[in-house]
């Protein structure tokens, strides 16, 4: 494993820890999109099916279990915890899952490497992950008051796939020189979706101002 990959995974893990910390410490999920969090549960469930089939490493299995467990835990807090769920921005989190899940699934049926159950679900998870942040970004645009933890959570979540892009370039030149269009393009689109957010996040950080996205 190279440094980019490890940095990407750690950034991803840190983003989730930060979100759980926000929820547990402040007893609030204000500004967090339940739609996005539910999409991540779908992403992890469809991608990590091979947990029971192929063993890569202890690191790999542990991280998969952590991502699955924490994503379900976050959704549970937002839907079922009697204090936290009352802080959820129900009226503003209006994006429909269906419009993301269905096209991604159809695309995975059409564009994939092998027509097998696991491979189709793996491809679907990459397509869905690339757009899963959209409900969260829409919610942030509507929010007049984005707290630091929420802003940093989204920043780290976006940075993680960006670091994976470097990891893929590195692996291309050091390992087997194979082109992997599906993860590469999905990852590129995923990172590009954050571009605007990165710009405003870094600007607010440099100017020590509160983060605000233009509507």
């Amino acid at each position: 494993m190279n440094a980019f990959r490890l940095a990407g995974d750690m950034t991803h893990l840190l983003s989730i820890i930060l979100l759980l910390l926000k929820i547990r410490a402040t007893k609030s999920c204000a500004g967090i999109s339940l739609k996005t969090q539910e999409l991540y549960v779908i992403v992890f469930m469809s991608r990590y099916l091979d947990l029971f089939r192929t063993y890569y490493s202890l690191y790999n299995s542990l991280m998969k279990i952590i991502f699955l467990g924490t994503s379900m835990c976050i959704v549970w807090y937002m839907r079922s915890h009697k204090v936290v769920r009352q802080t959820y921005n129900n009226d503003e989190d209006t994006f429909r899952h269906f419009f993301l899940v269905l096209p991604c699934f159809v695309l995975a049926l059409l564009v994939h490497r092998n027509f097998t159950f696991i491979e189709i679900l793996w491809t679907f998870s990459l397509y869905l992950e690339s757009v899963a942040i959209l409900p969260q970004l829409v919610l942030l645009q509507k929010s007049s008051n984005i707290d630091n933890l929420t802003g940093t959570y989204v920043f780290l979540l976006g940075a993680y796939r960006g670091l994976y892009l470097f990891n893929w370039v590195y692996r291309f030149f050091t390992e087997n020189h194979r082109v992997r269009w599906i993860p590469w393009l999905s990852g590129l689109i995923q990172t590009a979706i954050y571009t605007d957010f990165f710009y405003y996040y870094i600007r607010s950080w440099k100017n020590r101002e509160k983060l605000k996205l233009p509507a």
Binding site: R5, H12, Y56, N114, W122, I182
Partner: peptide, 10 residues
């Protein structure tokens, strides 16, 4: 073969 390069990622 199909399990190299990207299937071992998260």
């Amino acid at each position: 073969e199909s399990h190299s390069s990207s299937h071992d990622e998260l």
